[in-house]
């Protein structure tokens, strides 16, 4: 760390002052940051344990615990109904984790670093959202393996399977912006997680995931008809089991576009305003912090 070694490289500026960020740069920054998230998952795969265990438990529970009652005694028929539905529910649940992890990031200085760099403002959030594809893939792979073991059989071709995967991942990516927004707004990982869990309950349970809409009460059926979870489940069922796809698919795409249109700008606005605001806000309330203590300690000999 001598003066000689540090001198040469630091002095010369390399950046050309362009003054703006292009769309191509936004994409490349987002991908670089998605790579950061991806690396983090690879380093501690324990972060994937929730997206692997939750769907296993859900599927086992619904098929063997409730399947008898709900499927009218026919477990095989019920598996066919519930597997695509549980896929939707599972990626949805996996998508809400992002708000909590971004809120945790926000409590460090990492976003300050990104915001002070000449990179696209949206890149850290888009990157984080994209990195979660790892979670969705892990979740879906687990479900497919378990479903096959339990006797589920695909009724369609691989192209349709890929289409279903794309729709499921797209749905999770779009809806994760709700969680991102809450994470940026609330900045408390535990609260974000709790709130999101409550929020997705009516969406997942008041849907056609576990029962046919024809068996629902009228008002519930009306809600389930427009519920995005039902619509995605309907399309995925069509793509995996065979059957109509269009209605569910278009409905899902409209929902996804609407959620992104609303929550992406909201999340970006909250992100711009976020950031640790240190002692400056309430100077007196932080007198026991170590920073304040260091000042006292320094001034102590004089008093």
């Amino acid at each position: 760390m001598s003066a000689q070694t540090i001198a040469a490289p630091v002095a010369a500026p390399t950046v050309e002052l362009t003054g703006r960020i292009t769309f191509a740069q936004t994409v490349s920054h987002s991908l670089a940051l998605a790579g950061r998230g991806f690396m983090k998952f690879m380093k501690s795969p324990i972060q994937l344990v929730d997206v692997i265990l939750t769907p296993i438990i859900s599927l086992l529970m619904f098929v063997y615990l409730f399947g008898e009652a709900m499927g009218g005694g026919n477990t095989d028929a019920y598996i066919e109904l519930v597997v695509p539905g549980v896929m939707v529910m599972a990626v949805f649940q996996a998508s809400v984790g992002i708000g909590a992890s971004l809120a945790a990031d926000a409590s460090t200085g990492i976003f300050d670093r990104f915001r002070s760099m000449p990179i696209a403002r949206s890149a850290p959030l888009i990157g984080a959202v994209l990195a979660d594809i790892v979670r969705y893939v892990a979740c879906l792979v687990t479900l497919v393996v378990l479903a096959l073991v339990m006797g589920y059989r695909f009724g369609t071709n691989p192209v349709a399977w890929l289409g279903a995967s794309a729709l499921l991942i797209g749905f999770a990516l779009a809806f994760s912006w709700m969680s991102v927004y809450l994470g940026m707004l609330i900045k408390n990982p535990t609260s974000v997680q709790g709130l999101m869990t409550i929020l997705i309950l009516p969406l997942t349970f008041a849907s056609n995931v576990f029962m046919k809409e024809t068996e629902m009460a009228g008002w519930l059926q009306a809600w389930s008809d427009v519920n995005p979870v039902s619509l995605v489940a309907e399309a995925v069922r069509g793509l995996l089991n065979g059957g109509p796809v269009a209605h569910g698919l278009y409905g899902s795409l409209i929902w996804m576009a609407a959620v992104v249109a609303v929550f992406f700008p909201l999340a970006m606005r909250a992100y711009r305003k976020s950031g640790p605001r240190p002692a400056v806000q309430v100077p007196s309330a932080r007198s026991s912090s170590h920073r304040s203590a260091s000042w006292r300690e320094y001034a102590a000999p004089l008093s």
């Binding site: 200085g109 670093r113 920073r291």
Partner: peptide, 12 residues
Amino acid sequence: RQLIGLTGQFAS
């Protein structure tokens, strides 16, 4: 932002 570097109080 192309000219500056920042090291804040919080680990970045």
